[in-house]
């Protein structure tokens, strides 16, 4: 019986040893991620979500109509800016397809927000 425990104990040590040394025998040395900064840029989804919550606050009578309109306008402007940026990126990638889109960005923002709000309300979670 002692032999069984001896073998089991040795297997335990070998397994741990394997977990620890196996990376040194892997093919290539991957560069660790380093001190990469996290992406703290604002996304359109976040703006839509903020507008959604703002609208809920207004409908729940927690903020005044004036504040609601003012904040909503600010969010719309922000969304327009983000849409513009997005279009610029697309234009750089596909110059022909993006022609004319930039000037429409501001007009599209409000329609886009409304669409996204509807989507947000209907989605789960």
């Amino acid at each position: 019986m002692d032999y069984v425990f001896l073998i089991a104990g040795s297997l335990m040590i070998i397994t741990c040893f394997y977990f620890i040394i196996s990376p040194f025998f892997s093919a290539s040395e991957e560069q660790p991620a380093g001190k990469a900064e996290t992406d703290e840029r604002l996304t359109l989804e976040q703006v839509y979500s903020a507008v959604n919550e703002l609208e809920m606050d207004f409908l729940m009578k927690k903020i005044t109509h004036e504040d609601f309109e003012k904040l909503k306008e600010q969010y719309q402007l922000l969304a327009a800016e983000l849409l513009k940026e997005e279009t610029k990126h697309k234009k750089l990638k596909h110059p022909h397809a993006a022609v004319g889109k930039t000037k429409k960005a501001a007009d599209e923002a409000e329609a886009e927000i409304l669409r996204e709000l509807k989507k947000l309300r209907n989605q789960k979670g």
Binding site: M12, T15, C16, F19, I20, I21, S22, P23, F24, S26, E29, E30, Q31, P32, G34
Partner: peptide
């Protein structure tokens, strides 16, 4: 691993955690 920026050493450190969970 952090000093040498070596993924192999960091991976080995991860292996140590796995070993600890195992034992």
């Amino acid at each position: 691993g952090m000093k040498r920026k070596s993924s192999k050493w960091l991976e080995s450190g991860r292996g140590a955690v796995l070993s600890l969970a195992f034992i």
